[in-house]
Nucleic acid binder design. Sequence first.
DNA 1: TGTACATATGAGCATATGTTCATGTATTGT
DNA 2: ACAATACATGAACATATGCTCATATGTACA
Lengths: 114, 114
Amino acid sequence: MKQPALSQTPGTLALRRDDAEQLAARFKLLSDPGRVQIVYALLESGELRVGEIAGTVEASESATSHQLRQLRLAGLVRANRVGREVRYRIADSHVRLLLDVAVEHYLHDHGDHR
Amino acid sequence: MKQPALSQTPGTLALRRDDAEQLAARFKLLSDPGRVQIVYALLESGELRVGEIAGTVEASESATSHQLRQLRLAGLVRANRVGREVRYRIADSHVRLLLDVAVEHYLHDHGDHR
DNA sequence: TGTACATATGAGCATATGTTCATGTATTGT
DNA sequence: ACAATACATGAACATATGCTCATATGTACA
């Protein structure tokens, strides 16, 4: 058997606060342009050193490292050291789909609304 | 013919800052638990009054209204007045998929990482 | 062991975000 | 016209976020 898809308070179809927080946390990871660029770059390249990422994203190495830390702590990317370098790669198989869907989203409907 | 999927700086596969900002902005809308709950509730119910939404989400009507404003300005929801009430509904067909993917994401892999 | 290189991390700071509280606007009913 | 209802909005404020700068850690090489 499977567990229920989402924790469900009987009698309501509403999303529990708990679940909403988890979901929001996931989205929050991708709510920063720098992190989106990092994730995208890793999806494209498979594996990159911190320096390369910083270069691609045009951010300082420190800022990049801080961003990578967040992604790492959230389990979205994984790091492995090779000599003095640290190489990062995507660790979460769902991110690609999530980004793809968002790209579609972005392409179809954008503009200002009242 | 179709336009290129994403603005592409020739010679690089990297996501342009511009595009990254657009994508991040979309994710940012769903990066707040309250807004996730609102969107979820609207996806479930089709159409809801502000008061109902506030009740469901257990937030003040003012806070809810502020959140709805963001979603509305971003074109994610649409409002229509009926008497003194204002009814909101999802205006962006892609949101459902985005949330669904995130839910899958959330169900499969969560926990703490080093 | 000492130095250079690659990355990580903490503190501090400026800005962004979400809430509340007060007030404004639209609509209905008396 | 007046009061009540439903929602929107602006200002103020507390907290969160992401950056820089300084410093720490880990690795390679002389």
